[in-house]
Design a protein around this nucleic acid. Structure first.
Lengths: 359, 359
DNA sequence: ATTAGCACTCGAAGGATAGGAGTGCTAGCA
DNA sequence: TGCTAGCACTCCTATCCTTCGAGTGCTAAT
């Protein structure tokens, strides 16, 4: 059933006032805004309460939006806000000098999102499973060589190996061709003991070199699979009046800081509206989030990777402003990471591809 | 002037009781512990207060240690505590499967320290300035090659370069010898425009390849200089009664989370006792730490690197337990990172050297 | 349908009061 | 001289009570 125009206006005003002040909203204050008497407002509010959109902390207090009220506000009533030029500039500025390493980039984006929104924020990227594209072995000296592994997702990993005995250049070359023959294109699951044993026999390896390289390979593939994640600004919670109770704050901050908890819920969170997912209070799966809200946006991280950024805050969150900022940052990230495919000169192209650089 | 044995005992008891309960300590409770009447204790405490070791929150409350009292306790009175076997085992366990990448290792050590001590913790490693030892260029295909850089500190960095045009294997080889000739052994300061220009001329480079590799080199050297740091467990503060005031908590958490602030003070902090530095309340340089304490331990990270771990907490910190745990973790880290130099078989040696592996 | 008016509710804020922990001092005792 | 028992005093803390006022729901009038 559809609400009357005036009810919508009233609900909007209640939500926005409560978001701004954290104080229950009374009929008198609204009367001015809506343009009718407080008695009328009271009647309307009483009905809105009956419908479940508003709540009363106690009989003689004003009204507060219920989760359903916030939901309606977010879905239908809220106006899409625009960023100020200064805010947009600050974001673009930050994204321009982004870091090359994905973990660090996630940290920085989390930081950026948190400072822009004034809420704790997280950023993460989901990677598809990878395999090795090619192995290279750099012979440094008789006791030292470097393994370089190029993965299908175009990241490069390396490891310096010191040996307590000498090897010849040729041994390294043999190792190289064996690994390129047997270990490329396989997932970490497929690197089994039999495969390692047979490669060892083929290499005539008695020193365990094959095992070392193989275990490094597994390590690389595992690392490529792990979703890098950054969480930042957890302390922002403390400036919210709903978290003046240190115990509440502590519980939620613990939850947030342990990124894995949060991450495991993300994929199961409500559906997307305009590229945003908003989960309000009790809609959250985790017990710790039952009276908090989560807003997240997704972005295209290039190379088939999908990423998410989001913030956590009280249900009384400034959804409108947060939505605008998240959308803007997500769009900016997509632009920077996935980029326009047409190369535009050497340097530009190299910068665009910097996401593939790994330390 | 030296305190009498009994005064020492009383001061110790006051400090330890206050650390345990966060409540001012009265004469009656102490009388039982010390073994004389409360009146005697009162006289003694009155003198200790006069000497500046104890304070009274108000006339009719018990006594609380002053910063000077804590200082005396830490320097002379405190007993070196031993870890329980379970604690030692937990630490060793964690250190055994440490991560290979230094940034991540610092994060994990911070995390470990924080969970063990129940205070916010940080971990960092100071690196000496590095230079490039050798360059390698891996030719992948006509549009792609990988730069691999081995630094003097034995870390390896790499970068995948996509080109919008084709290059020949020989061009890459030329590049390699030029860089190995001109850019090895130099600090990031010494990579100047003239050097780049002259190398470009020598290479007959018209595509800006030299500039790209040079800028990557600078990036590597800068990254090698930056001290990797991990901060963890800031939310632990909230469980301390002195941070029930959300504003105080917020202020300190902000300070802690911004690692750079903390880091810049670390080198200037008091001198070392038994490998530990304790800075108590007003001894801290940063305004935000004036009523907190910092305990830090240093460790040998191998390869000439020195590292620090530490915790931040209220002045009413459990110095004894924290000192024991920090010492233990620091020793463990030194052992794992700097290690005994004698190799003990291939695998062992390789594990010991894993600190030099970089992604 | 809207509004003015009014009685009512109930939390928040502000004293006042009692309770009690702890002190300092004094005087007595070994 | 050092310790202790006793006692008056201080001052915080908790609790209760009152007041105040914002806000409500209802009724009757427009």
């Amino acid at each position: 059933m559809e609400l009357s125009e005036r009810k919508k206006k009233i609900l909007t005003a209640v939500v926005e006032s409560y978001i701004a002040t954290a104080e229950p909203v009374g009929s008198k204050a609204l009367a001015q805004v809506i343009g009718c008497s407080s008695a009328t407002i009271r009647n309307e509010m009483s009905e809105l309460t009956g419908m479940g959109y508003l709540e009363q902390p106690h009989t003689s207090a004003g009204r507060v939006p219920s989760p359903a009220g916030y939901r309606l506000y977010v879905n239908e009533l809220m106006e899409r806000q625009k960023l100020t030029e200064a805010e947009a500039a600050a974001i673009n500025d930050k994204l321009a000098k982004k870091d090359a390493q994905i973990e660090q980039l996630m940290n920085e984006v989390g930081q950026l999102t948190s400072t822009m929104t004034q809420y704790p924020a997280y950023a993460l990227a989901m990677k598809p499973p990878a395999a090795v594209k090619r192995f290279d072995f750099i012979y440094v000296d008789a006791n030292t060589f470097i393994i370089v592994v190029l993965l299908t997702d175009n990241t490069v990993k390396n490891k310096l190996i010191h040996l307590p005995f000498s090897v010849h250049q040729e041994q390294i070359t043999t190792l190289s061709s064996l690994f390129n023959a047997n270990f490329t294109g396989v997932t970490d699951q497929e690197i089994t003991d039999p495969l390692i044993r047979s490669t060892e026999r083929a290499a005539g390896d008695t020193y365990g070199l094959v095992a070392v390289v193989a275990s490094f390979t597994i390590e690389c593939l595992a690392a490529a699979k792990a979703a890098p994640m950054g969480v930042a600004g957890a302390s922002q919670l403390l400036s919210q009046p709903e978290f003046r109770d240190p115990d509440k704050a502590h519980a939620l901050m613990n939850f947030i800081s342990d990124g894995s908890r949060l991450m495991s819920d993300l994929p199961r969170m409500g559906e997307e509206h305009n590229g945003l997912r908003v989960t309000i209070g009790p809609e959250n799966l985790a017990e710790e989030l039952k009276d908090s809200s989560v807003v997240m946006a997704s972005y295209d991280a290039g190379d088939g990777m999908r990423g998410y950024i989001g913030v956590v805050g009280p249900t009384r969150m400034d959804y409108s402003s947060v939505a605008a900022k998240l959308s803007y940052i997500a769009a900016g990230l997509s632009r920077v990471l996935a980029g326009p495919d047409a190369p535009e000169g050497l340097n530009n192209k190299l910068v665009l591809k910097e996401s593939e650089h790994h330390e």
